[in-house]
Simulated scan of single mutants.
Amino acid sequence: MRRRTLDALLTTGGLIVAAVLLVVGGLMTWASSFVDNEVHSQLSAQHITFPAKGSEQLNDPLVKPYLEQYAGQQLTTGAQAKAWADHYIKVHLDESTGGKTYSELSAAARANPDDPKAKAMVDLAFKGETLRGLLLNAYAFGTMGKIAMYAAWASFIGAAAMIFLALLGFRHLRRVPVEEEVAIGSRHTAPKPAIA
């Protein structure tokens, strides 16, 4: 095979890989933007606002270290949703239910169906855990949006590298003599001296 043919094939392959990486990067950028916009609009619609700085609600040592950084802000991001779910709702839910899960409270309410307090605790746990789950889903999608953006950056960097290598390949292609051959799969070995 001629060296120029091999170089042309490899260089063209590099440009094809660069084009694919650019398309992937564009799609990942779109996905990241779509997820971020959806998470933001869905969370904004809930009108959840973190307690103001210095408020009594932030004095709880189980809450303050996690929510103080968001004091007074509206909940609009996945990270904020996780903080609210795990360090506000869960803390207050555990205080109200004595740390019992929905399943435990439901079993107790079924064992005593005439107890209105048990039924109220089941309703509270159900609503609290459902809201936590929805907020944690927003956090998960927000995290996927960030990962998509990192993947987009990696794709664009990879595409730039492949374009650079392809340009070097085209430059090298001009310098290779037309008649130069590439020996594929054959080895040139030095002849062994004859033994007399």
Score class of each variant (00 low, 15 high):
Met144Ile: 08
Ala140Asp: 11
Ala52Gln: 13
Leu135Glu: 12
Gly72Ser: 13
Lys119Ala: 14
Val122Cys: 12
Ala71His: 03
Tyr88Cys: 05
Trp153Asn: 05
Ala140Ile: 04
Phe126Pro: 00
Thr101Asp: 06
Gly133Asn: 07
Leu136Arg: 10
Ala159Phe: 04
Leu62Thr: 03
Ala148Asp: 01
Ser96Cys: 01
Gln57Trp: 05
Leu136Trp: 10
Thr49Gly: 02
His172Gly: 09
Ser55Tyr: 06
Phe50Thr: 03
Leu105Pro: 02
Ile89Asn: 07
Ala159Ser: 15
His87Cys: 07
Ala152Lys: 08
Lys100Asn: 02
Val176Phe: 02
Val122Ser: 13
Tyr150Leu: 15
Ala118His: 05
Val39Trp: 09
His47Asn: 06
Lys146Met: 08
Ala52Phe: 03
Gly72Phe: 05
Arg132Tyr: 07
Ser55Asp: 13
Phe156Ile: 05
Asp123Thr: 11
Tyr139Arg: 11
Thr97Ile: 07
Ala81Asn: 02
Ala125Thr: 09
Ala107Thr: 01
Val178Gly: 15
Phe156Tyr: 09
Ser103Thr: 06
Ala79Lys: 14
Leu168His: 01
Pro65Asp: 15
His87Tyr: 12
Thr77Tyr: 02
Phe164Met: 13
Leu124Trp: 05
Thr76Pro: 10
Ala81Glu: 06
Ser41Gln: 15
Pro65Gly: 14
Ser55Met: 09
Ile157Ser: 14
Thr76Tyr: 10
Phe126Met: 09
Lys64Gly: 04
Ala111Glu: 10
Glu56Ser: 08
Tyr139Asp: 13
Arg110Phe: 00
Ala108Cys: 09
Leu62Gln: 12
Thr130Tyr: 06
Val178His: 13
Pro113Gly: 03
Gly78Asn: 04
Ala83Tyr: 00
Lys82Leu: 10
Gln69Met: 15
Asn137Glu: 14
Pro61Asn: 11
His172Leu: 15
Val39Glu: 05
Pro116Phe: 12
Ala152Pro: 13
Leu167Pro: 08
Arg171Ser: 10
Gln73Ser: 06
Val122Asp: 14
Asp94Leu: 08
Asp114Ala: 11
Tyr66Gly: 00
Met121Pro: 02
Glu181Asn: 04
Ala71Gly: 03
Arg174Gly: 05
Arg132Lys: 15
His40Cys: 00
Gln74Thr: 14
Ala154Trp: 01
Glu56Asn: 09
Glu104Cys: 02
Thr143Met: 12
Leu173Asp: 11
Tyr150Lys: 15
Val178Ser: 14
Lys82Trp: 00
Thr143Gly: 12
Ile89Phe: 02
Phe126Leu: 10
Ala140Phe: 09
Gln42Lys: 15
Phe126Ser: 15
